[in-house]
Design a protein around this nucleic acid. Structure first.
Lengths: 239, 239
DNA sequence: TAGTGGTCTAGACCACGGC
DNA sequence: CCGTGGTCTAGACCACTAA
């Protein structure tokens, strides 16, 4: 018994209804959706079909899922221009949002083959690896792994790593940023990346790799950033 | 009766096995995977579970799906630096790949509200809208919509639009590109975008908006690009 | 026309989050 | 402890592709 109004498919119908509720402001950014069971009862369908509709809305960036916590309406994307090395907190504050940072780990280790390529290092060179999670309005949106060439940052681990690394570089080591190279592509979050972003394994994320150079053109470090894919809009100006 | 070797979950197990086959070269870029029914029999599971594994590999960019045609192993991502306005064909050829272009439509229309914002136009200004699909190695990877300010491009519709627009701008109108502005974020393909890329509705794509200026800083046009999300790696240099 | 993925049903148990 | 999403079973019919 098909629905009297046809939309092409059940999932399309559900998607459009939910989308309209969001557009009309009945469901507002940050709001929690009813549970999948409630929604599937509401739309008189199964959880699998209902979930397909939710996944479509997630892909479009309209809603997001917190692992085992529920589905929520997305907030506007954070505008992020990686060319300007302004502090994360400053960038977020300028957009009238709340920022916070959590350090997951910070330790000295040896460069992996991929890191050697990126940072132009000899095999087995020591690097300092710092893992951090950055949140906006209380939601974890970016997992980032900094890889610093150890010899250029003596005793950096003694400092407070919650703050802006840009500041630390400048104040403690006299480095300021010169040029940088970026790679940007969508991928899937695995392991600690998924965990720290409260994502289910293999959820889509936007990956941004940056290789940073100092004011003299010497390589400083690389940042591997994984963004929740609905939370960011990369914005770039080119001359 | 769980599998003797545990991987955390069925889908993880299936994903890892397929990933290994790809890594080892037993399944090579461009190869077609067995059908979902064959694979689910092979892994002794249902199509839904099997599909979850395929979706995870798709999110990671390892495989892709052609609507109702089957699943294929992804080729290496095309490196794309939007700062350089070299021709698409030239860029693709330089990476030892085969390029082709198809024009879906080209017509004069009136600027939508969003276009007015992007191009800084008065309401109801005429624009020329060109829809194209670009393929690499025979696979449609990018849907692009060009929106030209009509008054700046008299009679452009009389020309061959399969070729590079950059060339056409230069040769017919004396325009060369100055600066450009970009926005990049993941979203979902709907309607003609999904169709022209042979994607199922609401499949994930990487969206790139560019606003192009001429050598005198005057706005020329905007490009709305939708890339198959496994097919591209955006690469940017910043001074 | 045969085979493909797209969609859908009607359930079930599990692991984890939060009270 | 209960509610949540995560995972999974065992089927079914449909729309479209490709030969």
């Amino acid at each position: 018994m098909p629905n009297p109004i046809r939309y092409g498919s059940q999932t399309t119908r559900i998607r459009k209804v939910l989308e309209e509720q969001i557009d009309q402001g009945l469901l507002r950014p940050g709001d929690k959706l009813p549970s999948e069971r409630e929604l599937s009862a509401l739309f008189e369908t199964t959880r699998i079909t209902l979930k397909d509709a939710l996944l479509a809305l997630e892909a479009a960036g309209r809603i997001y899922c917190e692992d085992r916590r529920g589905w929520f309406v997305s907030r506007p994307r954070l505008m992020y221009n990686p060319q300007y090395r302004i502090h994360f907190h400053e960038m977020v504050t300028m957009q009238n949002r709340q920022a916070s940072t959590q350090v997951l780990s910070a330790a000295s280790t040896l460069a992996t083959p991929e890191l050697c390529r990126d940072l132009n290092l000899q095999p087995l060179t020591p690097v300092i690896k710092i893992q951090r999670v950055r949140s906006v309005d209380g939601r974890a949106v970016k997992y980032v792994e900094h890889n610093l060439i150890a010899s250029r940052f003596p005793r950096i681990l003694d400092h407070d790593l919650t703050q802006s690394l840009t500041c630390l570089y400048k104040e403690q080591f006299g480095y300021s940023y010169g040029r940088a190279r970026f790679e940007i592509y969508p991928t899937a979050a695995q392991g600690i990346i998924a965990e720290s972003l409260n994502l289910a394994d293999s959820s889509p994320v936007l990956f941004i790799k940056r290789i940073n150079y100092d004011q003299n053109g010497q390589i400083l470090d690389s940042d591997l950033e994984y963004w929740r894919h609905d939370a960011v809009c990369v914005s770039i100006d080119s001359g």
